[in-house]
Design a protein around this nucleic acid. Sequence first.
DNA 1: TTGCTCTTGTTATCACAATCACATAGTATA
DNA 2: TATACTATGTGATTGTGATAACAAGAGCAA
Lengths: 214, 214
Amino acid sequence: MMKNSFKSVIPETTLRRMVYYIRCLNSFKKEGVELIQSEDIAKKCGVKSSIVRKDLSYFGEFGVRGKGYDVASLLDTINGIIKTFGQMNAILVGAGKLGSAIIKHSSENFNVKIVAAFDKDKRKVNKIIEETRIYPLSEIEGIVREKKVKIAIIAIPPSDVQSVVDILVKAGIKAILSLALIPINVPDDVEVSFVDVLSEVEFLFYKLSLRRNR
Amino acid sequence: MMKNSFKSVIPETTLRRMVYYIRCLNSFKKEGVELIQSEDIAKKCGVKSSIVRKDLSYFGEFGVRGKGYDVASLLDTINGIIKTFGQMNAILVGAGKLGSAIIKHSSENFNVKIVAAFDKDKRKVNKIIEETRIYPLSEIEGIVREKKVKIAIIAIPPSDVQSVVDILVKAGIKAILSLALIPINVPDDVEVSFVDVLSEVEFLFYKLSLRRNR
DNA sequence: TTGCTCTTGTTATCACAATCACATAGTATA
DNA sequence: TATACTATGTGATTGTGATAACAAGAGCAA
Ligand SMILES: NC(=O)c1ccc[n+]([C@@H]2O[C@H](COP(=O)([O-])OP(=O)(O)OC[C@H]3O[C@@H](n4cnc5c(N)ncnc54)[C@H](O)[C@@H]3O)[C@@H](O)[C@H]2O)c1
Ligand SMILES: NC(=O)c1ccc[n+]([C@@H]2O[C@H](COP(=O)([O-])OP(=O)(O)OC[C@H]3O[C@@H](n4cnc5c(N)ncnc54)[C@H](O)[C@@H]3O)[C@@H](O)[C@H]2O)c1
């Protein structure tokens, strides 16, 4: 039923797991594996097989009952729906310690490519980290428009975040990932998320602390 | 009703937000603010005030109707329940680019303190980053036991992660935050979580891609 | 064709989380 | 003391996600 069509709203949690499924499929493909089962994906991603099947079912019916999924065609179909086709270009603002670690990380991970980095420190401008050049802030708008980049990562101190966000939004960025812990104001059509290692560590502390003591 | 006692199970989502509430309260306290309302916390943390009240209510009744919350006593009470008392000691394995960015980050954030870092690279051992000394892996067990550390952050390449996890678990670590994207095997009483910038970026790509096209 | 095996896709259920709306209980004022 | 006012705490409701269980479909063999 409803081949190649998909539910209009896909749960956030499903979309988060799709990241791992697709990586997993690419890795199977690279190894030359042609047919896989939901259980194989599940094991490799650390989830249950029933969740894998449910998640995939939001996008359509891709498997063969009794057999499993054809790795290549499953990848093709999903790439046809989520139109990234493996290549995801992003920019980075703030080429400090954290920023350069992220550039290096992305150079090891073929999915996301940091096509340009930006920094306000003149001494850093024009340096190249792992093939990514650092530009002055004044070039954000030009490069974003030229390369049609939609996503930006921000790795600068909290105090400067909102002013940089305003520049990014004006330049046409549609999603921002911030590594600084400060609320951000953006128009409704811009997605924002936050990632912070220490918040997660504190959360783990709280969890441990509340575990035994009632 | 039930003053100073709290529900046996506090939702994960609530615990995650508590991290931000407590930071927010500390910051109000530092500014000399003595009385606040759920709305103030909500604004500063980017959530709704009804959620703040509900979250706090899992721990007890701390506010005064018609007035609000006393910042100092609310902090004291929560610190009495979540027994971290502001000081949260952790260790870090992998003092590379990412690892040193995290050490620096924690030195700017008084809550989590990285009391020791570990690296297998002999050239890095005994160096000091922002007051945190780097030790060889062989000293993990001794230092973890001596300093009674319960939480570890791992910032090394995926290939080595499981072997390091085994050492950590043996040393008595009860929660692990990994920055490498590979499933980890631990006993049931050890908490594990993952943080990854690029996964979050890919998730944002998927979200954007699925937005307009149906 | 029938029957057997296998794994998918889906349904039904349960668990968890967010949100609303307001009774409640305190303060402030006169 | 009465009255108005204010922000909390919570019960009820809605929404969202996870899980288990199984019917449905495909392949295969005789
Ligand atoms: N979320 C996390 O998990 C996490 C982890 C580590 C650090 N951090 C935070 O990320 C931020 C950066 O950390 P870091 O270790 O890379 O610091 P850093 O000082 O090494 O680098 C910051 C860089 O940002 C640049 N910069 C500052 N203001 C700028 C602006 N307005 N526009 C463009 N560039 C600007 C600086 O020139 C510098 O190169 C800090 O606020 C830190 O607390 C977050
Ligand atoms: N999750 C994220 O958001 C994120 C971001 C950036 C990088 N990363 C990942 O984190 C890892 C580290 O990144 P990096 O930029 O710091 O790399 P890096 O090479 O600069 O540092 C890695 C460090 O780990 C040490 N190390 C390696 N194996 C070890 C072992 N078995 N025991 C102890 N120490 C060991 C190395 O000596 C080195 O100092 C990489 O796998 C990278 O892909 C994750």
